[in-house]
Design a protein around this nucleic acid. Structure first.
Lengths: 346, 346
DNA sequence: GTGAAAGCGCTAACAT
DNA sequence: ATGTTAGCGCTTTCAC
């Protein structure tokens, strides 16, 4: 930068001003500086800028693993922050609580203008211990202390919706399949969604059979297929499956196919997340849509206001869910649902 | 850090030495410093360290989009670099060439100890213009100048393998479905894989029908489903589909299901990438396995030696592929294939 | 509209 | 084994 300044016959300060599009620079000076910059191929050192100004123009999205669900959110976040000239980087904790905690340390936080952390493994107490004033938004289906901004899904409601839907079209033995991410704590996503499954039964005057809860760890398709295999082996009677995530549901569909069960005639299936993929399974997967757009939008908004330096009341957003119906559930009689997609035509 | 030094009664340099696990510090001094650090809750400023030392302990993986294919590579890269105490961050270019170029600018490169860039949209000429000595490894199915390290797949061979497999079990009208990522250049992945499809026909003494090439842009499932719909509408005869990516193949399977075509009896399907998902489609998807482990391993290795400061001859690695057979292709007679997975049992 | 001085927090190099 | 000096490249502050 010194070189540029000298070559342009100005001070470093003027070069800095030009490069940052600051107003009080003469038009001619600006041209000259830019020419020299182009000539010399000069590029600012972002690290030095960061050290001096505290700004990185980069936001981190820290996820438990590189997965489709987070991909779809990351895309939206990247778009939101891109509009304001900020970069998004994605980091993975590998679902290890110690890495989640590390992401909350000032060390890592200081690398970014702000951080959006998807929490799965930390206890409330561990989060409680976090001392930071850096812009931070928590995402995820766990309890977090009041003083943090937090975006989560209406998990219980979604699970209830999914279960009720299958009950409404005749299923009476609905298995719950799937668990939490590996390394996650109790009281997280799985427990909450299972509670929704129970409540749907209660509301219908039925009793959910605990034998139909497949204990499992993990959110991937292996979990779904294994659970179905287990159900088949154990000879338990079932005519519906609520998969805690779409990814698991994909495994459930594979398991049912290999067992020769027809979907939805013999067994109805509903997932949770409404991944883009849900439209392309065979049959199409009825799924709880968590409003990913809303999740990303809220997260971006909450982080933005922290970055802007405001210290508002922390917000705890619960994003509403809806059910998107596809071929893995039987057509419901009478009142057509709001969001059934048009039937596929050849 | 100054505070820590003072409180511990030592100089900043000693604190720095302790924090960096450098050898020449007395055991007692080390204890005392660490105590004070814990007491004061001091944490190093990574930016300052970076500015001074030039080291960030962070490596970037720049991808065209947050997608399953790259997720699976990112996981492996994160593991590889994690072992050496480096962080991996993933950035997306949105498949926009200008962003790929930006990732290659010194500005961005200087943020990281090294960068692995997955190229889809840049022309050879554009890459040629890149002047950088920063540790950089290029990934992807495009031509790149000799002076860069580059890891790519055996695309043509894989496509040939896929096509030949369907020819061997009776398909004679094999459609090619899928395109390049949006924003990518000609001569990339799609062209190369289509060439493999042609060559497989030639080797079998057959002629590939250009009418069976579905012109398409994009690598997602929509592309696959739309292509099948188009084939059906146009009344073209076909009894096999080579999908350029597994993601597209998933859409193909959905399209075939909605058209009432049985897989593999009426139409065989082979994909490319062997995503984890391929094991869970209905039926299971026969797919070309690009050796993701090898891709990640080579990329990590090549980047590592650059980071280590070596300036070796650039390497151009072509990772070999193999075919993993599942239910979307008919059983081959006679010589059983090396990699057919065990049949699913209930 | 432009420049000079100061310093962000750390570490390399060289003392001691 | 520990301390001193200097400076990484930029921007903030204040003066002109």
């Amino acid at each position: 930068m010194n070189d540029v300044a000298r070559a342009a016959g100005v001070s470093m300060m003027t070069v800095s001003n030009v490069l940052n599009d600051r107003p009080r620079v003469g038009e001619e000076t600006r041209r000259r500086v830019l020419d020299v910059v182009a000539d010399l191929g000069y590029e600012v050192n972002l690290t030095a800028r960061h050290l001096r100004s505290g700004r990185t123009d980069t936001v981190a999205f820290v996820v438990p693993g590189f997965q489709t669900y987070f991909d779809e959110i990351a895309d939206r976040l990247a778009a939101a922050f891109g509009e304001q000239g900020r970069h998004l980087v994605v980091e993975s904790t590998g679902a290890r609580p110690e890495n989640e905690l590390a992401a909350l340390s000032s060390v890592r936080l200081s690398m970014y203008d702000g951080v959006i952390l998807s929490v799965v493994g930390l206890t409330r107490a561990e989060i409680e211990g976090v001392r930071t004033t850096a812009p931070l938004v928590l995402l995820g289906e766990v309890e977090v202390p009041d003083r943090f901004d937090h975006v989560m899904l209406a998990n219980a409601e979604g699970a209830e919706l999914a279960t009720a839907r299958m009950l409404a079209t005749g299923s009476r033995r609905i298995a719950v399949v799937g668990g939490d991410s590996e390394g996650s704590q109790d009281g997280g996503m799985a427990a909450t969604r299972r509670a929704g499954w129970v409540r749907a039964h209660e509301r219908a005057g039925l009793v959910a059979d605990p034998a139909l809860v497949a204990p499992a760890v993990g959110v991937g398709p292996e979990v779904g297929r294994e659970a179905v295999r287990h159900l088949e082996r154990s000879g338990v009677d079932y005519d519906g499956v609520f998969a805690l995530t779409d990814s698991t549901a994909v495994g459930v569909l594979a398991g049912l196919a290999e067992a020769g069960r027809r979907v939805p005639q013999d067994v109805q299936v509903v997932g949770f997340d409404n991944l883009d993929l849900a439209e392309f399974t065979v049959p199409g997967l009825t799924s709880v849509d968590p409003g990913r757009d809303a999740v990303a939008q809220h997260a971006a908004r909450l982080l933005q206001r922290r970055i802007d330096g405001a210290t508002p009341e922390p917000e705890h957003v619960v994003v509403p869910v809806r059910l998107v119906e596809r071929g893995s559930t039987r057509a419901s009689q009478g009142h057509p649902p709001a969001h059934r997609e048009p039937p596929r035509t050849s």
